[in-house]
Simulated assay, not measured.
Amino acid sequence: MLDTTELTAAVERFADRLRAAPQSRLQRGAAAEGLALARELALWAQRIEEPGAAGDGGRIMPDAGVFTVADQLLVAGTDLAEALRTAPAGPRERELGEAVRLVREAAERSGL
């Protein structure tokens, strides 16, 4: 099975930074960056878990406000890590590396 520790750690770090950020920082774009990433990770997990349903565009994570985005990111990241870890064999190692890169880049863009 795939070791998804690096992905979950990166997601947890970004979520912790979002939780600790002041409201003004969240409103200036950090929360939007976190939500965009959460949505992307959630859709990615959906495509892995339900490959036949990928054509419907997936279920989009709602915007529940700047104070919930850290939790949304944590849920989406954890779901993707589990989907990658338990998915049938394939190029999952590459996908895992791509997911970690996306999380790190989003955290950097957020300024946190």
Rank of each mutant, 00 (worst) to 15 (best):
D71L: 06
G57P: 13
E93C: 00
I60K: 10
A32H: 09
L41A: 08
W44F: 15
E82M: 13
V75R: 15
P62Y: 01
D16L: 13
S24H: 02
T86F: 12
A70G: 14
L18F: 10
L84G: 05
A87C: 01
F14Y: 13
V103D: 08
A30K: 08
E105W: 03
L2V: 15
L26P: 07
A89H: 07
G29R: 12
L80A: 05
D3F: 04
G52A: 14
D16A: 15
L35E: 11
Q72I: 01
E6S: 12
V66C: 01
A21Y: 00
E40W: 02
A87E: 10
L80K: 06
R59M: 14
V100E: 00
A64G: 03
R28C: 02
I60F: 07
V75E: 15
L35A: 08
G29P: 05
E93M: 05
G52N: 13
L80S: 08
E49P: 00
P51H: 03
V100F: 04
P51V: 01
R17A: 09
R104V: 06
A10W: 09
T68L: 07
L41D: 09
A45G: 14
P51Q: 05
A70D: 15
G65K: 13
R47V: 13
V69R: 07
V11P: 10
M61A: 11
L74Y: 12
T8G: 12
E50R: 10
S24I: 02
T8L: 03
A106Y: 03
G34K: 09
D63C: 09
R94V: 11
A107T: 15
W44A: 08
E108C: 03
A38W: 05
A87W: 04
L41R: 04
A36C: 01
A106T: 12
E105Y: 03
R17H: 04
A10R: 07
A83V: 09
A10E: 07
E50T: 10
E12G: 02
G29V: 10
G29I: 11
Q23I: 14
G77Y: 04
G29N: 07
R17Q: 08
V66G: 03
P62L: 02
L26S: 04
E105R: 08
A54L: 02
G97Y: 03
T8F: 02
A76C: 13
L84V: 07
L102M: 05
V103F: 04
D63T: 05
R39C: 00
E12K: 11
F67H: 14
L7I: 10
L18M: 08
R104P: 00
E6L: 11
A45K: 04
L35C: 10
A15I: 02
D3A: 06
E40N: 02
L73T: 14
R109F: 00
A36I: 00
T5M: 10
A21M: 07
A21S: 13
R39E: 04
E93Q: 11
A89G: 07
G97W: 01
T8N: 11
A38M: 02
A15L: 05
R59V: 11
T86N: 07
L102W: 04
T86V: 05
L18E: 10
A83I: 07
A31P: 09
M1H: 12
G57D: 09
D63Y: 13
R17G: 13
D3I: 06
